[in-house]
Design a protein around this nucleic acid. Structure first.
Lengths: 242, 242
DNA sequence: TGACATATTCGCGTTACGCATATAAGTAAA
DNA sequence: TTTACTTATATGCGTAACGCGAATATGTCA
């Protein structure tokens, strides 16, 4: 490799003298669809890896922060606004892209059901359930979608991170509308974890956390006893760090 | 900003046509020193920010992965090998460096006491205790060291991440030699969390985890009953994801 | 009015943990 | 040799969290 001097960051180093990696952001768009954790993917039409499925992404512009680049990709490539966005991890293997050296900062984007449907209707993305380990993207026809580059590793890390955080953070609420039932919240947890949970224990735990505020309203369109609607209150504890 | 076409990642995009950010790695080197969580910092001799203290870092070469770049900086700038290294977070605010656009991938590096001392002896770095919120770097003379760029934010995130993970991951052992007493392990936890812990409860918790293997050996050089030495066994549960 | 489905609550056994206290095992000095 | 001292290690108990089965509540619909 090029010999980078010890005081590279200490003064008069000229980075233009060295070949520079490109930097992109990639979005892992996740939502709950039909009770399963699902991801939104774009089909690559051009080489490299034409025909494979990839995370929506884009280059980071010179005058744009990483968060801003992620928000721009969400808006321009997926057609969504206001989803929960948080940085996930950076991937920088030398050969992760065969054409050129690209370092990507992956972001987690959590969508409500209506946002998933809107994105699919907009036609840029397809939806696939995440199953197995490592996480495979299973299409509507139950066939796995072939993924481009290292995007399966990114998807797997995203799912595992979500699983690790769902139960002490407020991430679950990013999948839900402002008003939701405890059953809907439990459905989110179960879809993310891929395992059923005990209902009374889940209720107690969520209510004891003190985050939920009862609205007094009840769901309608139920052919049985309607459940109470809750909102996420402002008194959230600081989430544990990552 | 430059208008980056929608199919930037889909084919014939020429990234050389656009100005590209530089990419560095920065290392948050942490160790336990005199019972306090401490960081290793380098004094900047050249502008920008000459005289301030900074994380050791370096540019990512075109043919070098992020992890490899972090290991290289650890070796070349700090003079250490074999520390626990893990990626922390990427920082990409446009103005984080006044001279040029630099995106940095921050790494957490955990050192044993002897490694801290070796690095300090090598003379490239100084050691400072981390205290307060946001984390301030307190020098030997109890005066806070002025930090360069956004490095205080990076240090704070590193410390908070460590606090969040210490209790369900095996990170604590990276601060300890291969054989250690339960008291030493508790000292690590207390230094990281900045709070005393209940001794019997801590013992029980650690032993019930099943990670520790008793060696039958005892510490020496104690002027009282010597404690048993343990090692970290192979049967660790998969750590929770971040 | 009664069957049905789901929401919501209750009670109980188990486990994790904070905490005070006891016991064990070294060193060092009387 | 004994005793004080210090820290390691073990034990007992009260409390809080939680899994789980079962009971009760409240809607819709025939």
């Amino acid at each position: 490799m090029a010999d980078i001097s010890d005081d590279a960051l200490l003064g008069d180093y000229d980075p233009a003298a060295y070949a520079r990696p490109s930097v992109t952001v990639d979005l892992v768009l996740l939502g709950i669809r039909r009770g399963r954790l699902s991801a939104l993917l774009m089909r690559r039409e051009q080489p490299p890896q034409a025909g494979r499925w990839a995370l929506p992404g884009g280059f980071v512009a010179i005058d744009e922060s990483l968060d801003a680049a992620a928000a721009r990709v969400l808006r321009d490539k997926v057609g969504l606004d206001g989803a929960h966005l948080e940085q996930l991890y950076s991937f920088g293997a030398v050969d992760r892209n065969p054409r050129m050296r690209i370092i990507t900062i992956a972001y987690l984007a959590l969508l409500r059901e209506e946002q998933v449907e809107a994105a699919v209707r907009a036609g840029q993305v397809a939806v696939a359930a995440l199953e197995g380990d490592p996480a495979a993207a299973i299409g509507e026809d139950r066939a796995p979608l072939p993924l481009a580059f290292d995007h399966q590793a990114i998807l797997t890390l995203a799912r595992d991170r979500l699983r690790g955080k769902i139960d002490y953070s407020d991430l679950a609420f990013a999948f839900l509308p402002p008003r939701f039932t405890l059953r809907a919240l439990q459905d989110v947890h179960e879809a993310v974890l891929g395992t059923p949970l005990n209902k009374p224990a889940f209720r107690r735990r969520m209510l004891d956390r003190g985050w939920l505020v009862a609205t007094g309203l009840r769901e309608d369109e139920a052919s049985h006893r309607p459940a109470e609607l809750f909102t996420l209150g402002g008194a959230r504890r600081p989430a544990r760090s990552q």
